[in-house]
Design a protein around this nucleic acid. Sequence first.
DNA 1: GTAAAATATATCAGGTTGATATATCAAAGT
DNA 2: ACTTTGATATATCAACCTGATATATTTTAC
Lengths: 179, 179
Amino acid sequence: MASEKRIDCVILGLLSHEDLTGYEIKKRMDTALKYFWSASYGSIYPALSDLVSRGLAVKREDGESGRHRLIYTITDAGRDYLRNWLALPVLKDEIRYETLLKLFFGKEQGPGQAISHIEALEKKFRGELPYLLSAEKILKESLGDDTAHKYYLLTAEFGIKMYRACLEWCGEAKQLLAE
Amino acid sequence: MASEKRIDCVILGLLSHEDLTGYEIKKRMDTALKYFWSASYGSIYPALSDLVSRGLAVKREDGESGRHRLIYTITDAGRDYLRNWLALPVLKDEIRYETLLKLFFGKEQGPGQAISHIEALEKKFRGELPYLLSAEKILKESLGDDTAHKYYLLTAEFGIKMYRACLEWCGEAKQLLAE
DNA sequence: GTAAAATATATCAGGTTGATATATCAAAGT
DNA sequence: ACTTTGATATATCAACCTGATATATTTTAC
């Protein structure tokens, strides 16, 4: 089996939960998946056309609103494709922190600049943590409503753990640089 | 100023510490930078040629060994370029965890498969943590030897924090799935 | 002596981003 | 009523990067 394209799998995954437009798919990624995944319109729209041509999804035009909306639905073949990918071992988990890269080369810039890069990261994470915490609360309260909620909660907990660990590190790193 | 290409910046950063071949640059990324950055030969070799043509690095052939080796050295212009990039704010820190993606769509696969994906991640991190801990020990002991060591230590501490937080999460996630 | 592993450079198809273009609809202010 | 702003919505593309592959030499281990 040829390696499954990741963009196809994310999209089918999201479509396995509900029918969506390309725009809504992007929105889901920028909110629910934000803490561990991302994708651009430049990959989403071509992938959607491709999924339809391969029979993994079907497209219909929105009749309700006057707005031009193309709504996508997963097919049985799409669900099979998704399940097959889910059963395969994970190929790659990656992290690309430009902040850490700049820090690694800190000798060329000095502690002042290094600290300001850390503070920018700290500020970003401090701002995002409350959203994750409120998502956690909501998901915990609605665990019984939908089997999927348990899995959503798991990924939210991951984000919280990572953000907290990173914020802890920011504090310690600033202290070491100030010495 | 046009946005600086990240591959150029990583390479110049590594060359700012010592002269290296393309192969050695890749090695550094796969060891020291592994916990927050990566790059492939397919980007490293063309970037090296490009850096030379732009006067940011110079190339010489190794005279010592019989082996074909092209050793690169950073120029003053290259150092300026690097410092300029270091002073710019960080554009993007990203994380792409396929494990979390598969977990998010867990409803389609069930808890058994989800647990095995988590266990694979756990195993990988447990195996890598000792290397980071020994790097931490060595760097702590040699903090006075080189200004750069403090910055290396900071990035190692980051890796340790992240790995430990992730391992903690793995344990809790497995428990929640077993319920 | 030789098999395996490490060193070393190079190329390329195909996946992905970030920017950009275009257009409509809803909400808020004046 | 009018207008501006922001959200919704699709689409395209150059430039960047990965993962795979090819090639060849040197060192290490048996």
